[in-house]
Design a protein around this nucleic acid. Structure first.
Lengths: 121, 121
DNA sequence: CAGTATCCACCTCGATACTG
DNA sequence: CAGTATCGAGGTGGATACTG
């Protein structure tokens, strides 16, 4: 009975998934971590543009959902590593579908926008 | 040259796609319209819970992106029909991938959350 | 019927600065 | 290094009421 969930249910918890994927940084973190475990600062450098606050929040949310794991190696200086869990890794599949759709159809979307924007020019 | 776009580019326009999919109501509209053209009020009744304002905004954004078409049959009372464009229709593909991932993995996510929430009990 | 107009409560995100 | 603390701007979404 793996179909007990229905994204269309409105009150359905699976709705949160859309929210995660639609979130500003989730997709970047997933992609960055797809290459392997990374430390906070590495992630920050890799994504570039993200603030520590946003990174922390994104990581926390993803960790909360079991998408990433956080491993504190302790010591001083601190050493913490983030990695994709198998669950987070599986997210790459639908993400790829979306990505492919985007890369394929964005030109069409931009055309639509341009057609609508054509001012007087 | 269909791979000129890269979702990871950060400044990439394809990023807007994620935003659309992640948007509160887009997915509902797409699914509702997947069954065929519909009028404003039908849509509103079908989705239920959405306010006219939100519906209008969602529809506008989607129309702007060429995902839905708006046909005003004029007259009084007004008669306007919304329909998925071929582009909007193609969105159903990645949407299905996300949906399936969600429906499959939400239990895992909820488990992760529960595991983390276990207070002292 | 098909919206529009307001007003508002959030909530996310960014910038900056500081700490164990 | 790995965050946390603060503050503020901005945008999204909701409720309600009104109009051509």
């Amino acid at each position: 009975m793996s179909k007990a969930y229905n994204v269309m249910a409105a009150t359905c918890p699976s709705r949160t998934v859309l929210h995660r994927i639609g979130a500003r940084w989730t997709v970047f973190v997933v992609n960055a971590l797809a290459a392997g475990p990374m430390r906070f600062t590495e992630l920050k450098a890799h994504i570039r543009g993200i603030t520590p606050k946003a990174l922390t929040e994104t990581l926390r949310a993803m960790e909360y959902d079991g998408l990433v794991s956080r491993t504190d190696h302790g010591g001083n200086p601190p050493h913490v590593e983030y990695a994709l869990t198998p669950l987070g890794d599986s997210l790459l599949v639908p993400l790829r579908a979306v990505r492919e759709w985007a890369e394929t159809h964005v030109p069409a979307i931009e055309s639509a926008r341009a057609a609508r924007s054509t001012p007087g020019t």
